[in-house]
Amino acid sequence: MSNQPLLRLADLTKSFGGVMAVNRVSFDVDSGSIVGLIGPNGAGKTTVFNLITGNYRPDKGEILFDGQSIATMRTHRIVSLGIARTFQTIRLFPNMSALENVLAGCHCRMRSGVIGSMLRLPWQKREERQALETAVAELSFVGLRQQLDQVARNLSYGNQRLLEIARALATRPRFLILDEPAGGMNDYETQVLVDLILQIRDRGITVLLIEHDMNLVMKICDNLVVLEYGILIAQGTPEEIRTDQRVIDAYLGAPDADGDEDF
C-alpha cells in the first residue's frame, strides 16, 4: 500500500448559508511531503483545514486519512489518529507555562484515568515522567528550551507560534497542518521556521500548510494546491504553479497586501 496517499480529499463540499466555502475539492497529500495550500483571502483554505480536523462536517465528499474515513469523526479522535494543527490566530492556553501547554498536547497519548492519577500509581507516574520528557524534547526541538517556565502570553509573537508547533508535535502526529505559520514573523524568524518545517518533514511527519509568504512556499513545498472561491483551480509542483496562467490571474499576479484570512 505504499502508493496510497496519507490524506485524500474527494469531492469535498461545504457551504455556509448560500456561500460555497469549499466546492468539490479533491486532492491527495503524499506521505513524507510538504504540501502548500494557497489562494487569495476567502478562498476557503482555512475551511478545508477545519474540515480535516473535524471542526466542521462536510456537506458532501470524503476525507480519507491513511485509508480511513475521518469526515464524520470527532476532533479528539482525529487527533489520536495522528493529525495535529496550529491556528492562524494563536490559540495557546495563555495563562499556562510553555511546558504546561506542551504537556496538554501529550494528553491524547496518555492512558491513565482519573482514579489512577489521584492515587499516584507507579505506572502512572512513569507515564507522567515520559510526558514531561516528550514535552521538554519538543520545546528543545523548536528552540524554546530556555523559555520552558515562561507563561505563554509573555512570549514574543514568533515564539508563541513556535510554541504552538511544539504543542502540536507533542500529540505525536503523522500529519501536521500549519495555518499561516509565518504570519507576523520577521525575516529572521521566518528563516528559522523554514528550517524547522524541513526538520519536521525529516522526522517523517507530512506537512500541509497555508501560507501567504510565496518565497517560503515556493522554497519548501513539494506540491501546491491553489484554491479560489472554494474551487481548486490548479495543483502541481511550485514550478508548474508559478507559470500557471489561472493562478497568476487569480493570485500571484495580484498579490494582496497582507490581510485578514477567510474563516
Binding site: 473535524g54 471542526n55 499556562m96
Partner: peptide, 19 residues
C-alpha cells in the same frame, strides 16, 4: 489539565486530543 485547557479554549483543547 484537560479541564483547565477546555475552560480556556475548547476548540484548541479538542485538537490536543482532549474529549
Amino acid at each position: 489539565t484537560a479541564i483547565r485547557a477546555a475552560a480556556i479554549d475548547q476548540g484548541a483543547a479538542k485538537l490536543m486530543g482532549i474529549d
